[in-house]
């Protein structure tokens, strides 16, 4: 297996977010792309990552390969990704070779773990409201809620998104709308409202740096789905289970 990706920093931000959810993970490289789908041990968050072959500069996978990786260690290595570095991933003899191709080549080797690959199903949900925004808008939204509370409540109707947090510290209310220009798209069959632990958003918001836009979909008292659109059509999505009254 040998993969080359143009911008190593995309991987850095994406895997950093993934490392907040799982300590170890199994990637699958096959004809459909490079994938990971996993749930955190408390079964509240799921990550669904898919880099199809065409987003890579080079994609050589002779046979379907599973790669068990210590995500924490991989994150440490990827943190060394610099501007203008390309990322090279190779599997060889029980090791994952992570290379940065920029001015010269830097190579890291990590042991592959013998972990079982199990195909997780995607949650079976139909979400009635969705809103798309520039990724930095989403990041600021999460950062704005953080000083106040650990529970974030989102309300989406056909025109706007209202996010709230409240605690004994105080209250926060952030409104995004088409009108004020901080939403790219919004739609809802009817107004939907749901609450989630804010810390899960804080964990995965770092991936926003790699994405152009973020789409938040939810239904009342149902999981939400956050999808980051990464360069060249790679996909990174998260599901977060709600807290209900």
């Amino acid at each position: 297996m040998r993969l080359v990706f143009t911008d190593a920093r995309v991987w850095r931000y994406v895997i950093t977010a993934v490392s907040k959810i799982i300590g170890e993970g199994v990637f699958k490289a096959g004809p459909e792309g490079f994938k990971l789908r996993a749930m955190d041990p408390s079964r509240i968050v799921m990550v669904d990552l898919n880099f199809p072959p065409e987003v890579f500069e080079e994609y050589h996978v002779d046979e379907e390969t599973t790669l068990g990786v210590n995500i924490e260690d991989l994150t440490k290595v990827l943190r060394r990704a610099g501007k203008d570095d390309k990322l090279v991933l190779e599997a060889e003899e029980g090791r994952l070779k992570v290379g940065f191709l920029g001015k010269g080549e830097r190579i890291f080797k990590l042991p592959l773990l013998s972990l079982e690959y199990s195909e997780l199903p995607e949650p079976r949900i139909k979400l009635k409201a969705r809103a798309r925004m520039i990724s930095t808008v989403f990041k600021d939204l999460v950062k704005d809620l953080e000083p106040i509370g650990d529970l974030a409540t989102f309300e989406i109707d056909g025109e706007k998104v209202v996010a709230r947090a409240s605690s004994d510290v105080g209250e926060a209310e952030i409104e995004l709308s088409m009108e004020s220009g901080n939403l790219l798209e919004v739609e809802a069959e009817e107004p939907q409202r749901s609450s989630y632990s804010l810390s899960y958003f804080s964990d995965i918001v770092s991936a926003a740096q790699a994405a152009d836009s973020v789409e938040l979909s939810l239904s009342t008292d149902m999981p939400c789905r956050l999808e980051y659109s990464l360069p060249q059509g790679a996909k990174l999505a998260f599901y977060i289970a709600p807290r209900v009254e």
């Binding site: 079964r43 799921m46 949650p123 999981p223 289970a241 709600p242 807290r243």
Partner: peptide, 15 residues
């Protein structure tokens, strides 16, 4: 309490 109110994704993953 969170343990009462927090759902897990499994609720939506049963076949």
């Amino acid at each position: 309490l969170k343990i009462v109110r927090q759902k897990t994704l499994e609720t939506w993953m049963q076949p």
